[in-house]
Amino acid sequence: MSTKPKILVFSTEKISDPAIDLAGLLKKHYPNTVYTISVPCSSGIKPRWIMQAYEKGFDGVFIAADGTDCPYGESCVEKTSAIISVTHDLMRQKGLKPSQLKMAALCSVCADAFVAHINNFTKELAKKDN
């Protein structure tokens, strides 16, 4: 059980969280050690939250971003990337591998994409752990 990597997903309330809901609705399975916290917009995720997750024991953090669909405007894309790069710097300082943080834009019906991303991420993280 504990060998499964623990992943924290930040999703967005209007776009990517519905996709994750849809994955469940369609009974598309992914590891149960994936937990989701939903926020209004992916460009509102603070790097310190991500860092806190690693500190407390998460193996990976996945940002399910809005992409260009973001209801708050298209600047979301670059802002989310900026957050990622800031976080990457912080991670390097702490000796974490950048690959422990993943981001992908998910549309509101991208259930398949979500499950694929998560399964790949889990596999990658598991490999690195060993």
């Binding site: 994750i20 809901d21 994955a23 469940g24 609705l25 009974k27 399975h29 149960n32 050690t33 989701t36």
Partner: peptide
């Protein structure tokens, strides 16, 4: 949300 993101997503793994 323990339905869409839990009971249904992990219906293959009730213990999990």
């Amino acid at each position: 949300n323990i339905r869409e993101q839990d009971s249904w997503a992990h219906s293959d793994n009730p213990a999990g």
